[in-house]
Write a protein that binds this DNA or RNA. Structure first.
Lengths: 349, 349
DNA sequence: AAAATCAATGAAACCGCTTGAATTAGTTTT
DNA sequence: AAAACTAATTCAAGCGGTTTCATTGATTTT
């Protein structure tokens, strides 16, 4: 049905290879004008368009990037992270004239066996949108070593795998810096799940932020927890219990995400601590929890679309060789000041 | 890098075609057991996986469906329709072991020229998520006649193009039926943009709903408008002005979407009409506007994920020949009863 | 035991396009 | 006018599979 290069060759009365060369040649290429015109005219006449598959097979380049997403509980609509990320990916993919093929799996466990079929020539590189570090996929992909890939939303230790992630550490340091700039010196941390990489990174950022301000790190200011409301609430109360009088009580709380921050807010308000007067609070993420109720929470906004964009860009750069496989990118977070941070009371008096 | 069928053939000491046949054969196929085992073992040993591109080229089937989305203002995150639809598509695509390739364009106008490259063998069929009827694409695709496609979210008149859409007409009739079942006989309609197909369909449904209840259609009960808040508000006031005394005033309003319904609510409340006691209101869509404020609006829920699922399913059926190209599907809407509908006052007395 | 039948495998063409080497045509050079 | 280049075009071998058809070897049939 669709015209192939053969019909064009016949129409233009030249060989197949001439057609191919004329049609692919750079503008400055060397062909008899007559020939070129004849070919172009013939191509138009028969409505020729190259078959991407055949071309891909011989060029070994499909002009397509693959996106692997786990789709167990999450989906584009239920998980804002996936949606935003996909948005970013599609954006630069389109911009750089690539196609995007999506591979979905019920879970990451099921992904491993079908991995080979993702490296089957369908696409030139893989984007892995991994909610949490997954042990199997990455080594498997590295072992194959036949397709470039970049991890999205995770920052492995490895120096050989490419990844793009939010700059957890930098953002955490910036959060602390914001509190410091307001005059806080006693800054506590309400952490998330200790096994998650993001938690470690945010904790490191917290330390660096203190260090930068030459504030000593005190372990009694650091409250381990989970990325959940309840832990935020409980830890806030725990903090009050640990520091009954205001003299040594922290004046600010860096919560490792917005849900924790909301929990902490509620806990403190319940305990008649006024926010931000008696306690400043800063969260992380800038998701729905930061603005669902008052007080609106000051937070570090993660730009996930940008993560998606950078990831696609990095992958394409790796594919075309302008960057090395081990490259990685950290996209900075943005400080969003709202109602839960202010100068400490001591400063105001 | 990746092992090809050649290595397998060499390892197993058989010909290429034997390898291909053994590896593709249905379970009941006829091969010497020894050969089969030798081939399978060799394949496993060299880590063979078929190259989808090469296979696609010769089989002329890529096991992939294409999804064309306009991405001008809308995106997966900003347009809940796109997101939900994509969700549904990915769901059945995965379930039926297909890949999904996404083609994004800045606008529908820009899609036409690149259309040929979407039919270039990359995928076996096309899903067109068209926000509003677009004149050029469909005829172009029909003219090419080299790739099956189905329209998503639009119901063209044509009987030759496949489509999947929400059942606007049926849902509108159901909305009216709901009001009728509550005892309403005087039911007004607040319409949307007259040029949109959905509006025509909902209007038809309104008429059918009345017909089914043997209620005469009165043109003075029908208020043309736009799918916007303001028109809803204005038309509600217009209705009160047109029917100053309650004796002949409609007792229920079928609004062609939730924004209109919200506008109408606000207009009526402003005019001290109590909802639903003095006026029942039913909307359409069940989107954020239905539940953003009180009163929570009774509405017809569109299941867009289901639209996506059906569309992908239909396309795959057309591809594998189990359905005809002209097929279409209308997915039913669901009545969501909330706070804005009740029996008319006359009945309550 | 020769002829006929059938199951298992292999040879080769093909899918549509690319590409490097080989060939032909067209200019210069001497 | 032959030799030496260069520019323009074609040949032919892939890319990695699938598939038709022919071939071989084993099993029946008579």
């Amino acid at each position: 049905m669709a015209a192939s290069i053969r019909e064009v060759a016949r129409e233009a009365n030249v060989s197949l290879s001439t057609v191919s060369k004329v049609l692919n040649a750079k503008p400055n290429a060397k062909f008899a004008l007559a020939t070129r015109e004849r070919v172009v005219a013939a191509a138009k006449r028969v409505g020729y368009h190259p078959n991407a598959i055949a071309r891909g097979l011989s060029r070994k380049r499909m002009e397509t990037i693959g996106l692997i997403m786990a789709y167990d509980q999450a989906s584009v609509t239920t998980d804002p992270y996936l949606g935003a990320c996909l948005d970013g990916v599609l954006h630069v993919s389109k911009q750089r004239h690539q196609k995007t093929v999506i591979f979905t799996e019920d879970s990451w466990e099921e992904t491993l066996p079908s991995l080979p079929s993702y490296c089957d020539g369908h696409c030139d590189g893989l984007l892995l949108v991994i909610p949490r570090s997954n042990s199997d996929i990455v080594p498997a992909l590295e072992a194959r070593n036949d397709i470039p890939f970049v991890l999205v939303g995770d920052s492995p230790e490895s120096d050989t795998v490419a990844f793009v992630d939010v700059d957890n550490e930098g953002a955490a340091a910036a959060a602390v810096a914001h509190l410091v700039s307001l005059g806080h010196r006693k800054i506590a941390a309400l952490c998330g799940n200790p096994e998650l990489r993001s938690n470690t990174q945010r904790l490191n950022g917290y330390r660096k932020g203190l260090e930068a301000a030459e504030i000593p790190y005190l372990s009694e200011y650091v409250f381990p927890g989970q990325y959940r409301y309840q832990e935020g609430y409980d830890n806030a109360l725990g903090l009050l219990a640990r520091f009954p009088n205001t003299s040594d009580r922290p004046t600010a709380l860096f919560c490792f995400n917005d849900v924790i921050a909301r929990g902490a807010c509620d806990g403190l308000i319940k305990s008649s601590i006024s926010i931000p007067d008696e306690m400043s609070i800063i969260g992380f993420d800038d998701n729905i929890h930061a603005t669902s109720r008052t007080p609106l929470i000051t937070t570090m906004r993660q730009d996930i679309r940008s993560v998606g964009r950078c990831a696609a860009g990095l992958l394409l750069d790796i594919i075309d060789g302008s960057r090395k496989q081990g490259s990685h990118l950290l996209v900075p977070a943005e400080l969003i000041v709202r109602e839960t941070t202010s100068a400490p009371q001591s400063r105001k008096d």
